Computed example of a mutant assay.
Amino acid sequence: MTIDSSAPRPRANRLESPHPTGGYDQMVTWPNGNVSYLLRGQLHREDGPSFVGADGSRSWHRNGREHRENGPAVFCPDGHHQWWLEGHQVSEAEFRRRTGH
């Protein structure tokens, strides 16, 4: 296998300490336009989506697991939403029952 050293590489910005409101220590911009926010190498962000796709998708993670307490944790480009708590997918009804939202 050969590796094309001229292929576009992700651009990573590492912070000296976690972001004061976002809690992440690295932001990675991928050649395809996707953006990931990481804490110790895992998707993590406290003040917004931890993954923003160039296609319009967005997802929220805490410590590498899908999680959001004030709305759907996953937004797909086709308009589909998914609710997740602590890495477990739940129905919208279960989400509302457990979070009061």
Rank of each mutant, 00 (worst) to 15 (best):
M1Q: 12
T2W: 09
S6M: 13
P10L: 07
P10E: 12
A12N: 04
R14K: 15
R14T: 14
L15H: 04
E16I: 10
P18W: 11
H19E: 14
T21M: 12
T21L: 13
G22F: 13
Q26I: 06
T29L: 13
W30D: 07
N32K: 00
G33W: 03
V35R: 09
Y37K: 03
Y37R: 07
L38F: 06
L39G: 02
R40A: 13
G41K: 02
L43M: 08
H44Q: 00
H44D: 04
E46F: 10
D47V: 15
G48V: 12
P49M: 01
F51D: 09
A54C: 08
A54T: 05
D55K: 05
S59N: 08
H61L: 10
R65M: 13
E66G: 12
H67F: 03
E69N: 09
N70A: 14
A73S: 03
P77C: 02
D78A: 07
H81L: 15
W83P: 01
L85W: 01
E86T: 02
G87C: 05
S91W: 02
E92V: 07
A93W: 09
E94P: 06
F95S: 06
F95G: 08
R96P: 01
R97D: 15
R98H: 07
T99Q: 12
G100Q: 05
H101F: 10
